[in-house]
Simulated assay, not measured.
Amino acid sequence: MKTIVLVRHGKSSWEYDVSDAERPLKSRGVKDAKLVAKHFAKENLIPKYFFSSPAKRALDTCKIFVNSFDLSENSIKIDNSLYDFGGESVVNFVKSLPNDINYAMIFGHNHAYTSIANIFGDKFIANLPTSGLVKMNFEINDWKDLKKGKTELIITPKQLKE
């Protein structure tokens, strides 16, 4: 079995005149990411493998999760193909993961993550919000055989604040 956790970056700030890739998190984005990470840590086994888009907002969200899990930021691998908004590059990335990795957490962007969650998971998500995560399990032994799986968990900041 293979398991993937998709995490959409936290709410980003538009108040700085920077490129899209350099856009930072808003304070709300930091708070929401910490909230979701803390909740996930209580509910689940923590993966050993963390992959992030190089975009500042995604990488900073990844660092918040890794730090919440008391792990080293050295456990994060940055991959340019995860700076993807459509989803094809992310799917290709997942399908090319080494098969000795059975459980990974990937940080990136929408619309890609909502689409991937709906294509490969078994629960419809209208929109994966910022700092939201989706955990999916797949009855496969080889990542290249990625197919419809089971959505095990969806966590959003809003549900934790209610």
Rank of each mutant, 00 (worst) to 15 (best):
A117T: 08
I4L: 10
V30T: 07
S96Q: 14
W14I: 12
D60C: 14
L71H: 03
S27A: 02
A21Q: 10
L82S: 12
I119T: 09
L153V: 11
G149H: 14
S72F: 09
H9A: 10
V94E: 03
G87L: 13
P98R: 13
D145W: 10
D100P: 15
R28I: 03
S131F: 01
L82P: 01
I154W: 01
V66T: 11
G132K: 07
M136T: 03
A117S: 12
I64V: 04
I4W: 01
S96D: 06
T151E: 05
K148F: 04
I154T: 09
G108H: 01
S68Q: 02
Y16H: 05
P157G: 04
Q159V: 11
P54Q: 13
L35K: 04
A33M: 00
A104I: 03
L153C: 10
G29E: 02
A55M: 15
P157L: 05
S13R: 02
N92H: 04
N141G: 09
G29A: 15
F85E: 11
V18P: 13
A58R: 10
D145L: 10
D142K: 06
N99Y: 13
G29C: 10
L146A: 03
E43H: 06
I125Q: 03
S81C: 11
N92C: 13
F138I: 01
N80F: 03
K31M: 04
S27C: 14
A37S: 06
K26M: 11
E43L: 11
S72D: 12
K161N: 13
K135D: 08
L45F: 13
L97C: 02
S13C: 07
L146R: 11
F50W: 03
Y16Q: 11
F107E: 04
S72R: 14
S75M: 04
K135E: 09
K150L: 14
H109I: 09
K34D: 03
K42I: 14
A33W: 00
N74D: 05
A37L: 00
D20L: 15
S19H: 02
V91C: 12
T130P: 04
K148V: 15
K63S: 02
A58W: 01
Y16M: 06
N74A: 05
I116S: 01
D32R: 08
P129Y: 05
N92E: 05
I116E: 07
A41D: 11
I155G: 15
S81M: 05
D32E: 04
M105K: 00
L82D: 04
D79F: 12
M136F: 06
K147R: 14
K161I: 05
D32H: 10
K158G: 06
D17C: 14
T156Y: 02
K31F: 02
S13E: 15
G10H: 08
E88M: 09
S89G: 10
I78L: 07
K38W: 08
K26C: 07
L25W: 06
A112P: 06
G10A: 11
K31C: 12
T156F: 00
E162V: 08
G149A: 01
I46V: 07
E15W: 13
K144Y: 02
F93V: 09
A33R: 00
R28S: 04
K147G: 04
I4K: 10
C62Q: 06
K31I: 15
T151K: 00
S89R: 08
